[in-house]
C-alpha cells in the first residue's frame, strides 16, 4: 500500500512539474520579442551558449566522423561496398549523430551552466532584486537565453556534421584508400535534401528548444541553496539527455516511418 501511495504521489508530482514547465514555456515565449528590441541581450547569450560550445562540438564531431569512417569501412569492405562509405558517414551524421550528439554535448556544456547560473541568481536574490527594480526577469534574463539556445543548437549541429564528414574523409580516403571521387559522389548521389538535411535541422531545432527550456526551468524553480542548485543541474543533464533520446525516436519514427 505504501509503495502504491508513493507511486501515486510520484505521478501527481510529475504531472504538476510538467504543468509548471508548460506554463513557464508560455511565459518565456510571451517575452521573446525582447530579443528583437534589444539584440545586444541575445548576442551576449549567443556568446556564452554558442561560441563557447564550438570547440567541444568541433572536436567531438571530428572524432565521431573518424570513428564512423573506420567502422564504416571495416563493415562495408566485407560486402565490397566501401564505395558507399561517404554516403554512410554523411547519412549517420546528418540524420542522427549530428543533431543528437550535439544536443547531448550542449546539455552537458551549456545546459548545466544555464541551470547553475539561473539557480545562483535565484539563490543570491538577484532575480528578486530584478523584480523589485521593476525589471521582469522572464524578459531580461530567461527569454534571451532561451532564444540563444534555440538558435545555437541547429548551427552547432550543422558544424558537427560538416566536421564529422571531414573526419570520415580523413580516415576513409587519406588513411584507408577509398577513392576521393567515389567518397564524395556516393554522398551526393545518395543524400536527399528534404529527407536528410531538412529533417536533421528540424531535429536539432526541436532538441535545442527542449534542452534550453529544461535547463532554464530547472534553474528557475530550483530550491534556492547550494544543494538545490546541484540537484537542479543534475536534473537538467539527466532529463535533458533522456528527453533528447526519447524525442529523437519519436521524430525519427514520424519522419522516416516506424
Amino acid at each position: 500500500m505504501n509503495a502504491l501511495q508513493r507511486l501515486g504521489r510520484l505521478g501527481i508530482e510529475a504531472t504538476l512539474a510538467l504543468g509548471a514547465a508548460g506554463i513557464f514555456f508560455l511565459r518565456v515565449v510571451e517575452q521573446l520579442w525582447i530579443v528583437v528590441r534589444r539584440p545586444a541581450l541575445l548576442v551576449q547569450q549567443l556568446f556564452s551558449v554558442g561560441v563557447l560550445t564550438v570547440i567541444i562540438i568541433v572536436l567531438a564531431g571530428l572524432f565521431v566522423g573518424m570513428v564512423l569512417g573506420l567502422q564504416g569501412y571495416n563493415t562495408l569492405v566485407d560486402f565490397g561496398a566501401e564505395s558507399s562509405l561517404g554516403l554512410v558517414v554523411a547519412l549517420f551524421l546528418t540524420r542522427e549523430l549530428g543533431p543528437v550528439l550535439t544536443a547531448l554535448l550542449f546539455t552537458g556544456r551549456a545546459g548545466s551552466a544555464l541551470t547553475a547560473e539561473i539557480g545562483l541568481m535565484k539563490t543570491t536574490e538577484q532575480l528578486a532584486a530584478l523584480e523589485m527594480m521593476a525589471v521582469n526577469p522572464m524578459q531580461r534574463v530567461i527569454a534571451p537565453r532561451f532564444a540563444a539556445g534555440a538558435i545555437a543548437v541547429p548551427l552547432l549541429a550543422a558544424m558537427f556534421s560538416v566536421v564529422g564528414i571531414f573526419g570520415g574523409y580523413l580516415i576513409g580516403v587519406e588513411l584507408l584508400g577509398v577513392d576521393a571521387g567515389v567518397f564524395w559522389s556516393s554522398m551526393r548521389e545518395g543524400m536527399d535534401f528534404k529527407e536528410d538535411i531538412v529533417n536533421g535541422v528540424i531535429k536539432s531545432v526541436v532538441f535545442g528548444l527542449c534542452v534550453t527550456w529544461i535547463a532554464l526551468f530547472q534553474g528557475y524553480t530550483c530550491v534556492p541553496n547550494a544543494a538545490g542548485i546541484s540537484r537542479a543541474t543534475t536534473r537538467t543533464v539527466v532529463t535533458g539527455s533522456l528527453s533528447i533520446l526519447g524525442i529523437d525516436y519519436v521524430l525519427t519514427a514520424l519522419m522516416f516511418g516506424a
Partner: peptide
Amino acid sequence: RMRRKMGMLFQSSALLTDLSVFENVAFP
C-alpha cells in the same frame, strides 16, 4: 509602475555578479 517608486536592499545585497559596481548602479 509602483515598484519603480520603491527601492529594496536585500540581505544578500543581490548585486548582479557579471556586472561591475558602476554597471550595477547604472542597471535600473
